[in-house]
Design a protein around this nucleic acid. Sequence first.
DNA 1: ATGCTCCTGCGAA
DNA 2: CTAACGTTCGCAGGAGCAT
Length: 424
Amino acid sequence: MPIALVDCNNFYVSCERVFNPKLEGKLVVVLSNNDGCAVARSSEVKALGIKMGEPWFKMKDIAKKHGIIAYSSNYTLYGDLSARVMSILSNFSPKQEIYSIDECFLDLNGFDPATLMAYAQKIRMTVKQSVGIPVCVGIADTKTLAKLANHCAKKLFAGNDGVCDFGMLTGIERSTLFARIPVGDVWGVGRRIAERLAVMGIHTVEDLRCADPELIRQQFSIVLERTVNELNGHPCIELDEVGTPRQQIMVSRSFGSPVMYLDDLAESVAYFTTLAAEKLRQDGSVASSLCVHVRTNPFSEREPQYQSSKIVALSQPTDNTTKLVKAALNGLNEIYRAGYRYKKSGVLLMALQPKGTIQPTLFDDPVEQAKSDNTMSVMDRINRKMGKGTLTIAASGITKRWAMRRESKSPCYTTEWSELPEVW
DNA sequence: ATGCTCCTGCGAA
DNA sequence: CTAACGTTCGCAGGAGCAT
């Protein structure tokens, strides 16, 4: 029952390189929102020892010294390229689970085990040729093992051309390999759990594989017990093909610079709510309540700190931007306190359900409902065709003094005509 | 005693 | 010039509450 995990290499960096081949071989990082931390690093940058999540301002000296090129993140571009990669990959298996923006599982059940390595190479070549993104492929009998195999394809076997198939290993070879990998590299084992495992003398993947599942469940959770079983080749985590609709939708951002006044905060909350509402309608869901959240900057230790949130119930489930914004602003009014320097706000849409399943009695006025649906669908269509933010509600403001910093964003090559360089 | 919701911790990318 | 540290999602388990 082989499963492949296909994962893009340094995905955001690779996206930038697709449209700017001069970046090949150079030291490149992509920064998080607000140009805060490094969230993608080229292999050359990783070799310098710069860690994932490292704050940009802390590594500026090293960056200058080595000539690191930094990009602001361009999620529009990365999302579009991701969709192209996933579409190509879907041709390689009847069952695909898109796990994140840069990786997916493929069910390879029924394929001849002896041909899987070659098949994986074909996958890599096809994606590279048609989208320009390099990927690695890990193959094994469970999702946890496939993740681990992918990790090996990337890290341990530099000479193995980006593919690793655990099906090719004997039991001894596997144990020897696992004994060289720190337990923290296993899917589902983060920093905290790794620390606690270390206390128990479990340091490597092999240690965890041989641990007593019953004990692990007792000391940790059923999740980690499943991990142990999966490491032993017993599938516990199903391939999840159907994109089960989200249970909540969150939009929040740190501000480019701190905000003091309710007006600015309200603009941001209104804007984030419109973004959340767009996602909600894309999912075909409606929300029954929402949560507004604001906070000061926890890293400014000398400043007075404040954070608060408020849950607002909606009179009936809706996907209408105007109604959601009104509710969010009501909530904001209740938690706003003057005199603080706010650094972040956010909106969480909660208690989501499929739009189709709302009880008909809730549609008291079908005419109103149809009007609302029409307005929203016109807005969505215009924004999709003419670019995000073409049509917005006034409450989200024009000036956006709080807008996030994005000092070095590349053009949205695949989605914005206006951003194409003229020479093209 | 049982079942529900809410909150927190943790992990992932 | 200076100051500057991400976002979004799910799951499990425990606390707290109602029945």
